[in-house]
Simulated assay, not measured.
Amino acid sequence: MARVTAYAPASMGNVSVGFDLLGAALQPVDGSVLGDRVSVESAERTCLACRGPYADVLPVNEQDNIVYQAMAAYFEASGLAPVPLKLTLEKNLPVGSGLGSSASSVVAACAALNRYFDDALEPKALLHLMGQLEGKISGSVHYDNVAPSYLGGVQLMVADYARKLPEFSNWYWVVAYSGISLSTAKMRALLPDQYDKATSIAFGQKLAAFVDACYRQDEQQALSVLTDELAEPYRAPHIPGFLAAKAALADLGAEAVGISGSGPTLFAVCRDSQSAERAHHYLNHCYLANARGFAHVCRLASDGVIYTSEN
């Protein structure tokens, strides 16, 4: 085929209750683009073109771009002989936003390359490659962004792969990116090296209770444990406006509020469209710090990566 394009949706890491183990893919209900696209096509020489609203913050040297690096890593992992390709990255997600920006680029690149080469890597191997590439940027290998962006929905990392959890179909996920950028590596450095026994037990109990509630479709139980025992206590004070917004959103009917990934994006879970619109209105007017910020009412992006091909 002459050209393959893969769209990888934005994702929330952790989802409060599942630090480094739980992630969710997002799709705005109004059809807005909230994810990166990568196209792959044959070329006389290998090159990378970047465009999109956030292309201006990408590395000037194409070889420093994670999409370019994904190509080299893909050839090595698949055992295919390298051939000259043109890659085009449409960068629609802000860097350092907490919406899986680097993961979206990685997933779109790896998925497009794999489809272009007739799925030379099976899904488990491809996800492993995505995690390794994401780790080069975030500072550690974890899959809670790449797995949902690739596979869709809410993904729980188990052993060496991921499992999609049953969804609560009536939930709206309202997300707001304030417009400031936070380094994932620096936000991870705020966390303690060790946790006490009580905190560790509480984390395990709540994650287990959330997974159980998803399978039994017990909304009340799921919402009651949708809290962050490990990261939010340390990160929240470093995210401007988060604590005030969390309190206000609870008053407006949000059932749960948390930090998306490392922040500064926050998310609010609402059980009806009216509460979601109230949260959206508040965040648009009270959380955004500059013109680059945005807020969206979302559902889960259940399909993950979406492909288009041109012959």
Rank of each mutant, 00 (worst) to 15 (best):
279 A>I: 02
133 L>T: 07
214 C>Y: 10
282 Y>N: 12
141 V>E: 12
114 N>G: 07
196 D>N: 11
92 N>Y: 08
121 L>P: 01
256 A>E: 05
212 D>F: 14
117 F>I: 10
81 A>V: 15
104 S>Q: 14
193 D>Y: 08
97 S>K: 04
222 A>V: 01
245 A>N: 13
17 V>E: 03
20 D>H: 00
261 G>D: 11
100 G>F: 07
143 Y>P: 07
244 A>D: 15
216 R>D: 12
75 F>R: 04
59 P>N: 08
141 V>D: 06
13 G>T: 08
17 V>P: 00
157 M>G: 00
183 S>E: 14
208 A>R: 05
163 R>F: 07
139 G>Q: 13
166 P>G: 14
234 Y>S: 03
105 S>V: 11
6 A>N: 07
52 G>N: 09
279 A>C: 13
265 T>D: 09
272 D>H: 12
194 Q>C: 14
205 Q>I: 02
74 Y>E: 00
83 V>F: 10
202 A>Q: 06
16 S>Q: 03
179 G>T: 02
304 G>C: 02
187 M>S: 11
231 A>W: 01
76 E>L: 13
56 D>T: 02
91 K>D: 09
305 V>A: 00
60 V>D: 13
286 C>K: 15
76 E>K: 14
136 K>Y: 06
75 F>W: 06
54 Y>T: 02
123 P>E: 07
113 L>W: 06
42 S>N: 03
160 D>F: 07
241 G>S: 14
91 K>R: 09
203 F>T: 06
261 G>A: 11
76 E>Y: 11
89 L>E: 10
48 L>D: 13
242 F>V: 14
251 D>W: 02
99 L>A: 03
170 N>F: 05
114 N>K: 04
51 R>W: 01
117 F>N: 06
103 A>L: 11
128 H>R: 13
159 A>V: 13
